[in-house]
């Protein structure tokens, strides 16, 4: 089932068109990777899905983005707080708040007034367990999160994102600051998380897209060139531009 559908989605930063009539359907509870060279529009596309681009001056968007059939770009769609609860995001550099591990996890819950104080401990535990941090941090919940290792910080950010029980997780280069071992651990975590979440990952690392995603889209100069099952794209891409990019002939 499609979780996110874009119809003729175009986006301009002032006079520059960053997305050109993107038509895509992201399937529920699968990992979809978006690959492409720098400046191809992949991060811009990702940021449309929780309307992060609203924060940028001069952005103009056309087309539709349906999440669970509701057009999040529609003029009547105003509940951004609700949208961002439903669509969590993990960034390139782990960005925990300068607060304790515990406070990081419950931050979103407080914003969304989601749970009673009594339930918070349970949620902190479950969130940390789902990113396999509980055993490491259960005795350090009140330490400052900035003291964690990079990988732990990134896991904490994922835990923070899923604490508010989103449906969709957007990941923008989530492993680019991590070493190969930490990267593999995050990818393993993604495989577990896809049982419950629809994951969209933007990555520069083609091997990561090949290893970690079920479906893959290739973008170039704001256009979606090809979208297919990842295994198809990496064994038999249909478009020569995809072929050139993934085999390193592009440039």
């Amino acid at each position: 089932m499609s979780k996110i559908i874009t119809n003729n989605l175009s986006l301009w930063y002032g006079g520059f068109q960053a997305l050109k009539k993107i038509n895509l359907a992201f399937q529920e509870k699968r990992i979809t990777s978006i690959i492409g060279p720098s400046g191809c529009g992949k991060s811009t596309l990702l940021r449309v899905f929780n309307r992060m681009n609203d924060l940028i001056d001069g952005v103009r968007i056309e087309g539709e983005v349906l999440i669970d059939s509701a057009d999040i770009l529609d003029g009547d769609f105003s509940d951004l707080v609700k949208l961002r609860k439903k669509v969590g995001m993990v960034f390139q550099r782990p960005n925990p708040f300068p607060l304790s591990v515990y406070e990081n996890i419950i931050f979103g819950l407080k914003v969304h007034h989601l749970v009673e104080k009594s339930e918070r401990e349970q949620i902190v535990r479950e969130s940390l367990e789902s990113v396999m941090l509980w055993n490491d941090l259960k005795d350090k919940l009140h330490r400052n999160a900035l003291g964690l290792s990079l990988e732990q910080k990134q896991r904490l950010c994922i835990a923070r994102a899923i604490a508010v029980e989103p449906d969709i997780l957007l990941m923008d280069e989530p492993c680019s600051a991590l070493d190969p071992q930490a990267t593999l651990k995050i990818e393993g975590l993604m495989q577990r998380l896809k049982n419950d979440y629809t994951i969209v990952i933007v990555t520069h690392n083609m091997q990561q897209a090949a290893r970690a995603s079920d479906d893959a889209g290739f973008m170039l100069l704001g256009e979606l060139i090809e979208f297919d099952r990842t295994v198809e794209m990496f064994t038999a891409p249909k478009d020569k531009r995809t072929e050139d990019y993934i085999t390193g002939r592009y440039g």
Binding site: Q207, T235, T242, E243, I246, T247
Partner: peptide, 9 residues
């Protein structure tokens, strides 16, 4: 070289 696509084939 971790070949893909036509290189892999």
């Amino acid at each position: 070289r971790q070949p893909v696509a036509q290189d892999l084939r």
